[in-house]
Structures are given as C-alpha cells and as structure tokens.
Design a protein around this nucleic acid. Structure first.
Lengths: 192, 192
DNA sequence: TATTTTTGTAAGCGAATACTTACTTACATG
DNA sequence: CATGTAAGTAAGTATTCGCTTACAAAAATA
C-alpha cells in the first residue's frame, strides 16, 4: 500500500513528535497542531492512530531497504561494511525525526501489528549485515573463530547504542564522523 | 530517601506493568489492580506517578550499584568482566520485570527528573566497565590500539541489545547461558 | 482506655484521550 | 455547468487519565 503525499507529511510529523516528545507526545491533537489543521482532518488520511505508527515504521523500513538494496557490494568486507553504515548515519543525520524508530524500544508492546513492523525493520539491517559478514568470513577477511550471529549482534548493538547516544545528546555531535570512527574500531577488531 | 516495604511492592508492580504492557500500560488504575487495592490507596504511598517512576529507577540503580560495589576485582580482565556480566544476567533473569529499565529508551523524554535518573543508571554500569577495561589496557591484557570509550560502547551496546532480544522473545531463552557466550566472544575479540 | 496515626475505601473532579458526526468548501471531470 | 469527490471544519461522543476529597477502620501510642 503506497502512501500519498499528505500521508507522508503526516508520517514525517509523527516521527518529529515521537523523537521530540516520546511516545506519550504522539497524540492526534499534537499531530493536528503540527500539521496546522484540525484533529478530524487526520482521519481523512488514516483510519486510526495505530495505522499511523505502522505506516511510519513501514515507510522507514521501505526507505532503508531501498537504500540498502541499491548499494552495490564490492566483496571487500571493510569497504562494504563502511558503506553500509555511512549510508545509515547519513540517512539519519538528514532525518533526525526518524531516529526514534531505529529499533523502537519505546514503541514495543503497543500492539501486535506494531511489534511485527519493528521486527521487520530489524530484519532488514540484519539481513544485509549477515550477507557482508559471512561472505567476509568465507573469504578469510574476517575472523571465523567466532559465530557469525555474535559478530552481527556486536555490530548492531554498537550501532544502536550510537544512535541512542546521539538522540540523548539532542543531535549535537556529528553522527557520520563519530559513527565512522566507531565502525573503524569494530573493523580492526573483527579483521583477520 | 529510603523506600518502605509497601513502596517497594508498588515499585515492583510498576516494573511488571512496564515490562508487560509498555509505558502506556503503566497507569494508576492498572497499578492499583496489580496491588489488589484502590487507586486512591496508591497516593498514600507516593505523591504522583512521576515519583513512582523515579523511585523505580533509583531503586534499580541502588540495587545494581550495591551488587557491583560488593563485587571484588581480581585485576584479571577476563575474570572481572565475566563476573560483572554474570552478575547482571543473573540479576535480570531473577527480576524480569525490571528489564524495561536497562537503558529505559521507552521512558525517555517523559520528564527532566526521569531523564536524570536514567543517566545515573547508565553511569553506574559505565563507571564499573571503564575501571575494568582501562586497567586491562594498562596491564597489557586488552588491546590498547583503540580508544577505551569505543571498547566500552561496543561492550555496552552488545549487552543492551542482548537484553532487548531477551524481552522481545518474552524471556524464553536462558539469558545467563547465552549472555555468557556473548561475553566470551567479546573477550576473545578485545584480548591482546 | 482515649487519642492519634496509618492505611484503606467510594465517589467524583477536570482534563485529555482517540475517534465520530454533520456539514462546508474547493476542485477536477463528464 | 452540473456533479461527484477529496479534504477541510466545529462540535461533539464515550472513555480514560492522574489525582482529590470525605470518610471509615484498624493499629499504634499516650
């Protein structure tokens, strides 16, 4: 189901509210104010609040998925891994308001459909990462004396914590620059 | 400010609600139901809902701080690091209902006092970890060709993601066992 | 035993919540 | 130019929210 332009505007506004005011700041009233029109107008574009949250997660997942798919793999683990995360850090530095949804801790337990949307979002990152890391292990570029899933978790966990810190610092530091250094450290750790 | 036994019971119930139903599931009504008495009775023990959340975070911080302080350091990085996390995994496997507060993403942006309580909670873990890792680098047990802060972030991020996955899996896997393996992998990565 | 303190209750407050209804306006299309 | 549709509004709905009040029983204290 493709989103219309007005729906995308609403989804972006919802992301802004979520990031600025947390899950309890995302109300229909606040959303209407952010859109500069009435509460009831929101319901011309979405059937419920839950639908808006799910649309937000799907929109983000589709955007990220599209960006990652269009990323060509060189086969060199260090190059591919750096590209992957440069892409991520750049995207979020241009779209602050979606940071809240990176792994969506705060949205958990709201509804079953929302949880599924979160899982799918995690899956997209994990799939691409697994492809790069396991290829690197096969071709002898990455240490293969440890489980691929462990390496994935270490990389993803570090990445996620970086996003958390960036948000806690109210986006005041240079995410692509600091993120890039972190990835360098990880690469040196896992290289053969 | 020490908590009375009834207050601790309420704080534990609040933790259960938060973990099971998310931030929006933590209402005075639900809390009263969980405690098997009326809503107004809650206000005999706490002045406001915010005070309950802060008490929860402080109680957790104090408990963890106390446990970590009573942990003797051997000077051997691998032993100390394993002890630190075994302690953590054991604690949370015995107190499922506090997992939500590990880094408290969902609680962020609720109020200034709550954010401060979260920061203090993060600080406790970071401080202990920094002590162990930087000592390990000084004594040549840990790679010193990378920044201590990077290593800390990698370890903490991995730990936090593990807790997230455990909760997403509704506590169905053995946290101390799987957590221990993860720490082993990290140790092998950062050892000299 | 008399009195104060602690801890509970039922009933209800105003505000905020997600959402609905009935109606209007602008505009594209036959 | 008539008509259907898309997109807005004001004014509501029922429900839930955190919290308060007035009162009762029990327990601790004088």
């Amino acid at each position: 189901m493709e989103l219309k332009t007005r729906q995308i505007e609403i989804v972006e506004a919802a992301g802004r509210l979520l990031t600025q005011k947390g899950i309890n700041g995302l109300t229909i009233k606040n959303l209407a104010k952010e859109m500069h029109f009435s509460e009831s107008a929101i319901y011309r574009h979405f059937e419920s609040k839950e639908e808006i949250i799910i649309a937000l997660l799907r929109y983000l997942a589709d955007t990220i998925d599209h960006r990652l798919r269009s990323m060509s793999l060189s086969g060199k683990t260090d190059v591919d891994l750096k590209n992957l995360f440069d892409e991520q850090f750049l995207f979020f530095s241009e779209h602050h308001h979606f940071v809240v949804a990176v792994f969506s801790d705060g949205l958990m337990e709201e509804s079953v459909s929302i949880n599924k949307a979160i899982e799918s979002l995690i899956g997209i990152m994990t799939r691409q990462l697994t492809a790069i890391v396991s290829e690197g292990q096969k071709t002898g570029q990455i240490r293969d004396d440890m489980a691929t899933e462990h390496l994935i978790q270490i990389i993803l966990g570090t990445y996620k914590l970086q996003m958390f810190k960036w948000r806690l610092a109210v986006f005041t530091f240079n995410l692509p620059a600091e993120g890039s250094q972190l990835i360098d450290t990880i690469l040196r750790l896992i290289k053969k």
